[in-house]
Simulated scan of single mutants.
Amino acid sequence: MESKSSGRVVQSVQRAFELLERIAMQPEGARLSEVADGAGLNRSTAHNLLASLEELGYITQDKKGGTYRLTGKVNRLQRLDAEAEQALRTRIRPVLQNVSAASGESTFLALVTGHDYLCVDAVQSNKPLHLAVRPGERKSLLGEALGHVLLAADTDLAASLRGDDPDSWTQYAREIAEAGRLGFALDLDSQRAGISCVAVAVTPRAAIAVAGPTSRLPKARLVKIGEKIRQELDAVRPANQEWL
């Protein structure tokens, strides 16, 4: 299909985004005929564009000839807007403070950004020997307890990362599966010598983690801290609405 320009707008790009927008208007899924007719495109052209968007991971079909729906990849193109992020941080801040006070360790909140996570808020331990976690720090989702619990919570994100880096995925697949089964992820002195961590997802895009010296954080204690995080989240969880 030939791509034409109108001014500075490439026609094929414009059409692809219009199809995405039309699919987004129907969360339960939209058929080829619906999005093609709505966009004023012949079905062959629409099908080719949709096939490209599906190959890129932005839309999916449950079965051949079925309806199209968006994947979570669209949401991962950008961080939360400033207002939504601030609202989440404000609600979660008491959780960080309470969990840090109860555990005595550094506690932090992080958000998904692409295939990384970004620390956006933290409460530091007041003990002389502790893990210093600073807002603005960014790390890969793979290889970290916090990343593993987020991957377990978002199957679209997991599929995207698995496709982009299959070797690394294979290395950590067991830990991610375990995080999905347990509802929390553990790092027992495996990523950084002398440091262990527990992480719990708030949403598929946000998670809380507690980390500190392994000498103070054996597995049994990490599990109890994970339970404490969930208790504190339940106490501030919005009623009948989403976190974000």
Rank of each mutant, 00 (worst) to 15 (best):
S12Q: 10
G194T: 11
L244R: 12
E242H: 15
V223W: 04
V120F: 00
T90F: 09
T90Y: 09
E85V: 07
L96M: 07
A132E: 13
A110P: 11
L141T: 04
V202G: 09
G57T: 02
Q61V: 04
D156F: 00
Q124P: 02
T203Q: 09
L109A: 04
L186Y: 01
L182Y: 06
D189T: 08
N126Q: 14
T214E: 08
V13N: 09
A209Y: 11
V149L: 04
P204I: 05
V210I: 11
R216N: 12
S140P: 07
W169G: 11
T107A: 14
R162V: 02
G65P: 08
L141D: 05
S3N: 14
L96W: 09
G163I: 02
E175A: 14
G38D: 04
R76V: 08
S44K: 13
S103F: 03
A24D: 07
N126W: 13
R181W: 04
L150C: 02
L233D: 09
L50I: 02
G29H: 11
F184H: 10
V10N: 13
Q78C: 12
N126K: 12
G183R: 02
L70Q: 07
R89Y: 01
Q231G: 15
D121C: 01
A16P: 08
G40T: 10
F184N: 00
L96T: 09
E55A: 14
R76W: 06
A209T: 02
S103T: 02
R93W: 15
G147T: 01
L49Q: 09
A239R: 10
P27W: 08
T107E: 03
Q124N: 05
S3D: 15
L41K: 01
P166S: 10
K224Q: 15
P128G: 08
T71Q: 05
A122S: 15
W169D: 07
A211V: 03
A211Y: 00
R162A: 12
T214M: 08
T155E: 15
E54H: 03
A101H: 12
A152Q: 01
R138D: 01
G163C: 04
L151Q: 04
S33Q: 11
S106D: 09
T60E: 13
V123P: 06
A179C: 03
V74T: 07
L182W: 06
D164W: 03
R181T: 08
D167C: 00
V210H: 05
V74N: 00
V198A: 05
A36Y: 06
D116N: 14
D187N: 15
G212I: 10
I225V: 14
S160Y: 06
I176R: 00
V13E: 10
V35E: 06
G7K: 10
G136L: 06
R221E: 14
R230T: 11
Q86K: 14
A173I: 00
T67M: 05
A158Q: 10
R174S: 14
Q97M: 09
E137I: 03
V95R: 04
L80Y: 15
D37H: 11
A84K: 14
A179V: 02
L70T: 10
E178N: 08
R76M: 10
T203K: 10
A211N: 06
D234N: 12
E83A: 12
V210D: 05
C197Y: 00
N98C: 03
A239Y: 13
